[in-house]
Design a protein around this nucleic acid. Sequence first.
DNA 1: ACATGGTTTGACCAAGCGCCTAAACCATTT
DNA 2: AAATGGTTTAGGCGCTTGGTCAAACCATGT
Lengths: 213, 213
Amino acid sequence: MKPEETREKILVAADDLFGELGFDATTTRDIAARSGVNKALIHYHFGTKDDLLEALLDGYYARLTETLLTALGARAGRSLEEQAEDVLDAYGDFLAENRTFCCIVQREVGSGQHVERIVARTLPAFQVGVQWLGRIAPHAPEGLELIQVLTSVYGMVVTYFTHGHVLQRLTGADPFSPKALEARKRHVRRVASLLLREIQRKPASRAGRKGGS
Amino acid sequence: MKPEETREKILVAADDLFGELGFDATTTRDIAARSGVNKALIHYHFGTKDDLLEALLDGYYARLTETLLTALGARAGRSLEEQAEDVLDAYGDFLAENRTFCCIVQREVGSGQHVERIVARTLPAFQVGVQWLGRIAPHAPEGLELIQVLTSVYGMVVTYFTHGHVLQRLTGADPFSPKALEARKRHVRRVASLLLREIQRKPASRAGRKGGS
DNA sequence: ACATGGTTTGACCAAGCGCCTAAACCATTT
DNA sequence: AAATGGTTTAGGCGCTTGGTCAAACCATGT
């Protein structure tokens, strides 16, 4: 077997297990067993278990940024609102196809030994998002500050994927079936456009009132 | 020292550590050291480490449901929209005062050994929420189905608290300062009322269009 | 003074962990 | 045929883990 195959098999097994059990609860022996690869090879190819996680995340973030940039670049002639839809769509599709990804990230972003690493990688995307929103809506109304909106939209998107178990039991249906995913996409698009329209509203009558109910 | 004190000290230490390092990465020795209590006492008072987590979550969910019911019951004469605001406010306040709570939950709801336990406890709140929304808006428009809206609002609220680290680095300011929390609350209220208004809209012209952007 | 029974203690255990090492493997070059 | 150097292997090392245990502690009732 080629060394590249070995690496790939280890990464796939680690991805599955980190997503299913969490990083801490997954042992190198689990990964070796699932991938059908000798335990020592993990350390030979990736170094420590932490390094393996880093390699995994490297791959994810590389693919994600590429996906998002492609979505932003393609059909560049579209309006900003349409670009927003494209990016959100692409992001949703990416998460749908890489469901372990947001489970791993969500698990580590709030607490754990890898907070810093995850935060450092989540941050740039947020910064780009804020800048981009700033171009669309230079004067955001009170209660709809750009960081607030961005945080909300982000949370709205990822929560659907991290809460698959809850949604499954709540609706009885598979939240990741093509149909369900399409429905979710429609919803996100709708809410996003609603918010976009709202933050683009001119301050209007700058007389007595200061911010609507 | 009274046994009740011991129990409390263990719970507080476990709460801190589970929130900071995660359940798996926290050892019973850590908890013993932080609480200044003998390691064996943890097992004497709570049983296994899993049982300790369960006791911790029991306390949290009990206080949370009490908080939410109180918020819903008080000022019962108010309109449904105002009740929604009250509940969201109370929920936000609760998370602000119990920041480790949503870190622990968020860490376990997507993956891990405690998924089922967490899901079983998150589910009822979702069910109540869906029922309640159903009373407000019996005919939700396409793209704004109640479960979708509820998921989004929930995600919007908790993401702010689970992503404290990111927001800290993004804005440079403490996202949990009273001022910042107040700003977030304003935002959530605003978006929620926006969504409420939208899902209550009558199907309107039932002629050609079916639900557009 | 003594017995009681809920608490506390330090020492201890088997199991499992991440990681390492020495030797074997094998395609390629000399 | 011998040597090379990137892979693969079984086994094991030192250490930490969650959990246990018998003994000690101590306020209480007798």
